[in-house]
Design a binder for these strands. Structure first.
Ligand SMILES: [Mn+2]
Ligand SMILES: [Mn+2]
Ligand SMILES: [Mn+2]
Ligand SMILES: [Mn+2]
Lengths: 219, 219
DNA sequence: AAATTATTTTAGCCTTGTCTAAATTTCTTT
DNA sequence: AAAGAAATTTAGACAAGGCTAAAATAATTT
């Protein structure tokens, strides 16, 4: 059995690797809320266990074995998020923190039961793809809302789950994965992006718009 | 936040206190699967935190604060057991081991949602009472099956959840909490106890019969 | 009552995962 | 190219929770 810490490190490494490409000690330190020195010592252990490769001062990379475990935990996390929302009505801004704990204690049997209950879902409540049992995961092509040109009809693909407050705001204006909306304008001086959905216009800060992934809608 | 270890110790102390009266180091060592020396050192810590009282060489006792926490964890455990059975169809011999992990990561919000989903249940799948939110718990009057005289009509109140194999056997013969059955005979030389339910007779070993609690049925 | 046995505690060690402070390496600027 | 800044690693410490072996205390026999 792997410790909760090791599982969290592998997950964090996977996520940083996906979004930044390179996985630095400081990025992990930041993401996991531990000191850089702690990261280095865990990195040593993970290397010894052949779950990651490490070039000193150069960052780390998951081995296939490490990636498999990372995806397993992410699968747990996302299935649990969706399950909590669907089965127990937990609001989408709260499922993440619950899943953060539950992901480490979910048995394979329970994982399968939840998967079946949900009808073998493909995405979690925030639109993130759920890794398959075999350790593969589809990756979709999409852009950050902040990069979209005005006057475009887009479909929301995925929203970051890390800021409950943002999620509550987005939920309030009806902005969920699969929602279609029009990017009306980008206000100057790093002002908000205005989107239109269900007939109303809503401002979305540039910073928030980095965490909303969309694709061009086929109109 | 209390560590999982501390929660498990408090729960174990509560359970030993209930069933044995006195809580010895060796009983806890046995129950928790750790060495007596480890128990002593944890006992020291729990005393310092005023969760138990300890007289050297004389055993321990929960303080009101410790008891409150123990019952809180037991509430989590039993709600989760019932939830897993009702909502996800986990067989009753497997719910215990799942709950053993989940009890430590259940938020109060989720606890309430599960409680509501289940319709504010009073007992878990094995017939054990579920402590209330306020930290109180009803205790029922009952006897071990092994102590019942032959030719008595009894109702099953509670079955120990610690041996999956026993639970599978009991499930197989339809012996669940609330089931009524007749104690037909006690075979000599510590032989099995024969019970009749749904028209058939079934043997139950003396040892197993210690873990099946019954009450006289009002016939 | 003494001797033996069983239980409990102490002493000392280990592993895991964290920290701070200091040293080292790499990156950036001049 | 050298200096200064930033990132990373090392060194050493600590808390939690476990272990074994030995010492202390309590319980049971003789
Ligand atoms: Mn999440
Ligand atoms: Mn986690
Ligand atoms: Mn437990
Ligand atoms: Mn609770």
């Amino acid at each position: 059995m792997l410790s909760q810490s090791i599982e969290d490190y592998l997950k964090a490494i996977y996520e940083v690797e996906s979004s930044e490409g390179k996985v630095s000690t400081s990025a992990l330190s930041e993401k996991l809320g531990v000191s850089p020195a702690s990261v280095t010592s865990m990195v040593k252990k993970l290397s010894e266990r052949k779950l990651i490769t490490h070039k000193r001062y150069q960052g780390v990379k998951l081995t296939p074995a490490g990636k498999k475990i990372a995806l397993e935990i992410i699968r747990h996390h996302r299935l649990v998020e969706l399950y909590l929302k669907e089965a127990l009505g937990v609001p989408w801004d709260q499922v993440h923190q619950e899943a953060e704990k539950w992901e480490h204690v979910l048995s394979e049997d329970l994982e399968d039961r939840i998967d079946k209950f949900l009808g073998y879902p493909v995405t979690d409540p925030h639109g993130s793809p759920i890794p398959r049992r075999d350790g593969t995961m589809i990756v979709r092509q999409c852009n950050a809302l902040v990069d979209v040109e005005p006057d475009t009809l887009v479909k929301v693909v995925e929203v970051s789950d890390h800021d409950p407050e943002l999620l509550r705001y987005l939920g309030g204006i009806g902005l969920y994965p699969e929602t279609e909306m029009t990017v009306v304008s980008k206000q100057p001086f790093k002002g908000p992006i205005i989107v239109e959905l269900t007939g109303k216009e809503h401002p979305i800060g540039r910073n928030a718009a980095k965490y909303i992934m969309v694709e061009k809608a086929r109109n």
